[in-house]
Design a protein around this nucleic acid. Sequence first.
DNA 1: ATTTTTATTGTGTTCGAGCACATTTTAACA
DNA 2: TGTTAAAATGTGCTCGAACACAATAAAAAT
Lengths: 346, 346
Amino acid sequence: MEKIYTIKDIAELAGVSKGTVDRVLHKRGKVSEDALKRVNEVLASIDYQPNLMARSLKKTQIYSICVLIPDSANDPYWQPCIDGINEAKKEFKSFNVKVEIFLFDPTSTSSFVETNKKVLAASPDAVLLVPLFHKEAINAIEIYNSKGIISSIFNNQLQSNAIKSFVGQDLFQSGRIAARLLDLLLKKGTIAIVHIDEDYENAIHMQEKEKGFRDYFDTLENGKFEIKTFKVKHPQFKSTLKEFLESNPAIEGLFVTTSKAYQVAKIISKNPEKKIALVGYDLLENNLEYLNNKTIDFLIHQNPKRQAYLGTTSLIEHFIFEKEIVAEKLLPIDIVNTENAKDYFS
Amino acid sequence: MEKIYTIKDIAELAGVSKGTVDRVLHKRGKVSEDALKRVNEVLASIDYQPNLMARSLKKTQIYSICVLIPDSANDPYWQPCIDGINEAKKEFKSFNVKVEIFLFDPTSTSSFVETNKKVLAASPDAVLLVPLFHKEAINAIEIYNSKGIISSIFNNQLQSNAIKSFVGQDLFQSGRIAARLLDLLLKKGTIAIVHIDEDYENAIHMQEKEKGFRDYFDTLENGKFEIKTFKVKHPQFKSTLKEFLESNPAIEGLFVTTSKAYQVAKIISKNPEKKIALVGYDLLENNLEYLNNKTIDFLIHQNPKRQAYLGTTSLIEHFIFEKEIVAEKLLPIDIVNTENAKDYFS
DNA sequence: ATTTTTATTGTGTTCGAGCACATTTTAACA
DNA sequence: TGTTAAAATGTGCTCGAACACAATAAAAAT
């Protein structure tokens, strides 16, 4: 075990006082050339690691982080995020950080805007948010940036150089994973990509997933598969999907790009003599039900809990430990079947 | 933000000195009933969280943890463990912990015993080990226990109440996952469980995987599958497996219970006109090669890196933060195909 | 040469918990 | 009641970094 040096040690080695060492370390000036040189020589010859305990004990400043996420009352997908954030809070509760959660209605742009106003009024040191609404999110982030507030995002990617960090998944790759699964399940046939319930033009994630999915089959180049796309919004959902399936009897596999696979499962499970392969997203209770009765073959886990956890801890550790914030953290894309589903709830 | 109380605050609230509060908190006795009651009342009315910075700053004791793992020169499976341990070391480098890695030869019982002796001579506060050799591991752990050294294990389960913690996977469930994958791939047919290269009687993990695998098909109760078992040790491996496959032409799927699926892949890839479904374990380079050329359909990831990381951090955090060590931590069992394999290297 | 200004360097206190030691209070005994 | 022992309580220092402030040295101005 190599020796752990303190400021006092360095001071003695350099023949100066600890005050001078401190000034050198923090580049506060007021140090003679001679002393500067001597201290730097010592610093170069040893590996000085400041004692973070002592530092954070002395610093009484409390850092404030605000997290903006959709209210899980509107969509159960978001509940795990709260758990992840609370886990991060718990882990760092004895440090000088305050993490506050702000919920907004994911179906309402104005709710998102209003919540951002509230956050701004709290004037935090950093904001972590789910940028569901593209234009409004960019706008909010630029305001934060102008006030010196750090912005990180998760779940949805967004291009803006005012953003410090993104935590999420590679959605293109995620589409390829679904494609590979259906390739293995079916070997050949017709497959439909099903986009449910969200504004397709605004939802880049669905587009990316589709691109990845098609990319897999394009590079396969064996012509054994035919890929179709089907878009639908909720109200007319049931009847239109039925129609679509009836008019395309060749379809043997479905890839649902949102967390609404259970709605598709509900329909196709009514016709059990014709098993259609089904791959979807997210471990919602509804989805798990159909996974367990084998109507859904695979679910892809986007790990919202871990996304939120990592987004939060990377900000906390930036303030507490002066860790650098990584610009992009892509999480593994977990493949879930009946047997390993429960593993992902811990 | 609720107030953060210090010992001084509590002392003032209870009308005693901080020394008395300290004695109450640490149950050191020498406190009058009256004072004890007053302090406890204050403690009950507030949520006191000791400042861990201050605590660990004061405590100059350096805790020592030794980790015993197989040398990756003998088996590349173990390399990620070193990475995981080093990650833990890095994360906690500014705390008062010393983590030392001891390697042993996984093919040699005496190497394991000798390494344990070395560890014992280092008289650490805790030991984390991979209990490859059942009897010898139990023996070593009991000696550690008698000296007040905490023992945790990972990768292999072991029954002993001298063990504080196990990090690993549910191997039975892991077998079920493989079964479910082959069920989806094949729908029906004959499948063989292949045990390669290890002493079957001693290797509980292979037995557990087989049990889980068979359990899945037993509860399926549709009689669409026939399950066979094939055991082989390395030297005669190639010829005997060929023979086995030739004499069982009905076999359409293979489940390899160790990390040696690439050896099977090598053989069956020579007969490309008959695709045999293949599921194995672990993201070794050799395996990934055959996963990418689609000879292997799925690999199950045992996440050795994370096992080692969590085993190490749980001990570190026990000493630093007085966190309780959870007796059993089961990691998710990750399903890996061509498309998400690289995700699991971060 | 002496005072003033400025640059440089050193000292001492703080953060909160932990623990050794000093001091005070209470109990026990002669 | 006085003396001693035992129990209870309080005080003060330490850990390492940060920073305010005091002290010293060097340079500039008178």
